[in-house]
Each structure stands twice: as structure tokens, then as C-alpha cells.
Nucleic acid binder design. Structure first.
Length: 511
DNA sequence: CTCCCTTTGAAGGCA
DNA sequence: TGCCTTCAAAGGGAG
């Protein structure tokens, strides 16, 4: 076992810097936009397509978006003259014509739309059906077009807001990464279904694609605005689909299956932590050369816990809005729709393998891939090993109630997996970052390990009984924001361990 | 090419 | 009701 003492790591952040400064983020849509006819000048400037028809189409779409935004966020200023080329923030920081390959500076208000709108360009008109007062098919509760609890802007403190992407990041062109960003790799990413609607998805991500808008396809929201969470399972384009006869009453199971697969994949709305990760990942990546998401996620997990109550609350609020918006966009969608799909693939594959070779299947089952990021801890070299018994106080007690969905229980088992089995240098960086994060928090670190909520058997630490947060919906926000419970201080022994062996990292046994 | 890893939170499934 | 499982993102690594 190789141990790396964090304390020995004196090196500063490798990649220097302020993540907000301008490291490159990922943006697959750029390629797409270029392919689609966008003109990318040397500075990364994206110009609207030269084709007038394309421009006209885009303008139309822009109008629709604008209209939607007006309904959604009436306070948004939508100048009449907004054009595609205007679709950048007016602020000096945004004057750059660069495509948002660069993550937005965190000092910038992410809610600031890059397109400045004015609502005199179009009349308010009647809101789309999904925003009109209607009866929720599920709950039977009438849904107001714009409930009072859904303010035009998130009620976040100015400073706090600065790091949160617009909840409609997928919709509102902005410098930062949208909540539903377009991953690299063009349209292998989340919205292949919208490939034909690339203009929209690109538009909404402040990437302009001249793809003209085809008639609304499935996956297109009634408002005409596709949501990035829609992902068509169809990746390969099938040249002709004669089987898809409209009147096909007698559909073979295969056909049914095909059509089933054709249904757009609407992704789950991101939860608070996911939103946080999305925003902070780049920062962490910038601070180190670490790229492995698993390791980065560990860092982010710890940072998440070290966030202050207010900071976390921002993300919970944001997530709540996301869910709300998601439910408005897809009233009939349920998480159930996506349930078991990934596993299905796995099972199918496994089944295939099994049918092919039972023994190999067994082997594959028993094979435990590569790296264990959170192996069983050494008995006492890390607080993480104290698992459930260590119901210490959260690093920042207030953070325990940072949000409705982040009850004390969650924080009582703050994840501080200190033993990591990644590459040595990665581990070192991780250790450094973790320590940094920990030290940055007011009192961090008397924490126990958190076993992941599911399938943690391979992690070596038993699942905590307190691992499940109180469902957000089940707790009134007022109550949740009330005074935090008084936790007994964390075991001093554990604290001592932390102090003496902060963040020791353990590698895999080197065979 | 696909899955795994890792994190937290939300939600579905099941007893 | 409570526990367990799955899925969201991300990208390198492994098969």
C-alpha cells in the first residue's frame, strides 16, 4: 500500500488558476455549428449563417424563444432589435465574440442573458398550452402559468447567483455552460433527436446553427422549444423506414420495440448536486490536471459538503426550479420512463454474453473493473473507516440544513472518502484539492465516509442508515430552513485521526 | 463502442 | 413507510 500524505503536498494548483478565468470547457455544439454553416473566425467568433433563409429561420426561432422567455421570465429585457449576432451579453465581459467554449467568469451573473431582449418585439400573446393554467394530468392540480413561487428570477443573492448557470441555460444563450449542455462530440450528445432541430438546441445554448427548423417532431415541446433533456435513442440514421406505416395496426413486437426505441429520451432534471458539479467541474479541472471524472466527482462531493448553507441552498433552489420547469415541459414524463434503461442495456449485454459463453459471462460478472475509487478503508487511518458510527457534526453545522433536500442526516455522514485508488499523481492532486477544499471551509472535516446510497457493497463501507435525505417535497421549506439541530461534536478521536493523517490516500495493492 | 468509476439527490419499485 | 435501486453529468480508463 502506498500512502500519500496530503500534508506533504505543498504544490499549488497546477493549472493555475482561476477557473473562471477561461479554461476551455467542452462544447461539442461548436463543431456542429460550424458544420451547419456557422462561420467561425479566428478568434472563435461565430457569425450567423450567411444564407438569408437560414437567418430568417433562425430569427423566427429566436422570436419563439424570446416569446417563451418573456412568458417565463417577464423581467427579461428583450430588445426588439435582438438578432443572432446580438446574442451575446452586452456587458464588457461578454463582448467577446467567442463561442462559449470558455466557461463564463464566475463573477458574472449567469442569469444575465447573452441576448438582450425587449418585449416590444412581439406581443405577449397567450402562453403555450403547457404554461397555461391547466390540470396536471398526474396530480390533478391546476398549474398556473407562472406560479408565484416561481419568480422570474431566482431569488438568489447577487454574489451567490454569480456561479449558477441560468436554470434555462439550455434555453437562454449565455456565456456559461447551460444546465443542459451539449457535450463534446457533436450529436452523439444529449440531443440527437434534435439534430434536425439543431438550430434550436444550438440556439438555446447560445450556439447558432443554421439548421432550419423542421416541423415539430416528437420530443418537441408544445411550445415549440425542444428541451435539451430530450434525447432520441436513435443514433444511427436509418435511411428508410417503410415499416413505420402510420396505419400499421398489426405491429410486430419488433416494430413496437423499434417505435419504443424511437421515443425521445427525456432526461431527468438535474438535482442540486448535479448542477453544482456541472458548474464547478471545470473549475476543479482547471485547478489541477486531473481529468478523471470519478476523482473529480469525489472532490466535488467533498466541496459540496463544505459549502455553506446559503451556497447549497442556491443549488437546491435551482434544482427545484429545474424540476418544476421540467414537469411543465413534460407533464407526462416520469422518472419511471428512464428507469431501468441503462441497466437494461447492461443486462442485455450480459445476457448476450451469457448466451454466447456462460462461463465468460460469469467471469465478466465477477470481474470487478479496474479501479476502486473508494476501497475499504484501512481500519483506522481515515475517518472514512469509521462509517456509520461516526455521526459527527457536519463541517458547517448550518450546512446541514443548507437545503430542504439536504437534511442533517445527509451531512452527518459527510462524504470524505480519503482513501482513493487512482493514479498516484491523480491521487496527490485529489488529496491536495480535497485538503484545500476542506481547509477552505470553516471547520471542515470531521466527517465520516459516505457510502454511496446504492450498490455500495463494492465500496467496502456499509451503507449508512442515514444516507437518505428527507425528500424535498415532504418538508416545508420554511421548516427546513429553520434552526439546525444541534449535533454533538464529532468524535475527537476521529478528529485526531484527521489532524494527524489528513487525507491519506491509499492505492490499490500493487499485486 | 460501451461500460465503469465516482459523487449527491430525486424518484420509482418493492416488501 | 422505509429501504433499495436507478438515473441524472462527466470524461478517462478498461474491456
Amino acid at each position: 500500500m502506498l500512502e500519500v500524505e496530503l500534508g506533504m503536498l505543498e504544490a499549488g494548483p497546477k493549472a493555475g488558476g482561476d477557473a473562471g478565468g477561461g479554461h476551455t470547457g467542452h462544447y461539442g455544439g461548436l463543431q456542429e455549428a460550424m458544420q451547419a454553416g456557422m462561420h467561425l473566425s479566428r478568434g472563435g467568433r461565430v457569425n450567423a449563417p450567411r444564407s438569408s433563409s437560414l437567418r430568417a429561420g433562425l430569427s423566427f426561432q429566436l422570436l419563439r424563444i424570446r416569446k417563451y422567455l418573456q412568458m417565463k421570465w417577464p423581467l427579461l429585457d428583450v430588445p426588439a432589435g435582438a438578432t443572432l449576432k446580438d446574442s451575446r451579453s452586452p456587458s464588457p465581459a461578454h463582448l467577446s465574440n467567442k463561442v462559449p467554449v470558455v466557461q463564463h467568469a464566475h463573477h458574472m451573473h449567469p442569469l444575465t442573458p447573452l441576448i438582450t431582449y425587449s418585449n416590444d418585439h412581439f406581443s405577449p400573446g397567450s402562453p403555450p398550452g403547457h404554461l397555461s393554467p391547466e390540470i396536471d394530468p398526474k396530480t390533478g392540480i391546476p398549474r398556473p402559468p407562472h406560479p408565484p413561487e416561481l419568480p422570474p428570477y431566482y431569488p438568489l443573492s447577487p454574489g451567490a447567483v454569480g456561479q449558477i448557470p441560468h436554470p434555462l441555460g439550455w434555453l437562454v444563450p449565455q456565456q456559461g455552460q447551460p444546465v443542459y449542455s451539449i457535450p463534446p462530440g457533436g450529436f452523439r450528445h444529449p440531443y440527437p433527436a434534435l439534430a434536425m432541430n439543431a438550430s434550436m438546441s444550438s440556439l438555446m445554448s447560445s450556439r447558432f446553427s443554421p439548421h432550419m427548423v423542421p416541423p415539430p417532431a416528437h420530443g418537441l415541446h408544445p411550445s415549440g422549444i425542444p428541451h435539451p433533456t430530450i434525447v432520441s435513442p436513435i443514433v444511427k440514421q436509418e435511411p428508410a423506414q417503410p415499416s413505420a406505416s402510420p396505419g400499421g395496426s398489426s405491429k410486430s413486437p419488433v416494430t413496437v420495440k423499434k417505435e419504443e426505441e424511437k421515443k425521445p429520451h427525456i432526461k431527468k432534471p438535474l438535482n442540486a448536486f448535479m448542477l453544482y458539479m456541472k458548474e464547478m467541474r471545470a473549475k476543479v479541472v482547471a485547478e489541477c490536471t486531473l481529468k478523471e471524472s470519478a476523482a473529480i466527482n469525489q472532490i466535488l462531493g467533498r466541496r459540496w459538503h463544505s459549502l455553506s448553507r446559503e451556497e447549497q441552498a442556491k443549488y437546491y433552489e435551482l434544482a427545484r426550479k429545474e424540476r418544476q420547469l421540467h414537469s411543465q415541459l413534460y407533464p407526462t414524463w416520469s422518472a419511471r420512463d428512464n428507469y431501468g434503461k441503462k441497466k437494461k442495456r447492461k443486462r442485455e449485454k450480459l445476457a448476450q454474453q451469457q448466451s454466447h459463453d456462460t462461463e465468460s459471462a460469469l467471469a465478466s460478472k465477477s470481474k470487478k473493473p479496474c479501479v476502486q475509487y473508494l476501497p475499504a478503508e484501512k481500519p483506522c487511518d481515515s475517518p472514512a473507516s469509521s462509517h456509520g458510527s461516526m455521526l459527527d457534526s457536519p463541517a458547517t453545522p448550518s450546512a446541514a440544513l443548507a437545503s430542504p433536500a439536504a437534511p442533517a442526516a445527509t451531512h452527518s455522514e459527510q462524504a470524505q472518502p480519503l482513501s482513493l485508488t487512482t493514479k498516484p499523481e491523480a491521487r496527490a492532486q485529489l488529496a491536495f484539492l480535497s485538503g484545500k477544499a476542506a481547509s477552505s471551509s470553516s471547520s471542515s472535516s470531521s466527517s465520516s465516509s459516505s457510502s454511496s446510497s446504492s450498490s455500495s457493497s463494492s465500496l467496502g463501507s456499509p451503507p449508512s442508515l442515514l444516507s437518505r435525505p428527507i425528500p424535498f417535497t415532504s418538508v416545508p421549506s420554511t421548516a427546513l430552513l429553520s434552526s439546525p439541530p444541534s449535533f454533538a461534536p464529532s468524535p475527537q478521536a476521529a478528529l485526531a485521526v484527521l489532524q494527524t493523517q489528513p487525507l491519506s490516500l491509499v492505492t490499490k495493492p500493487a499485486d
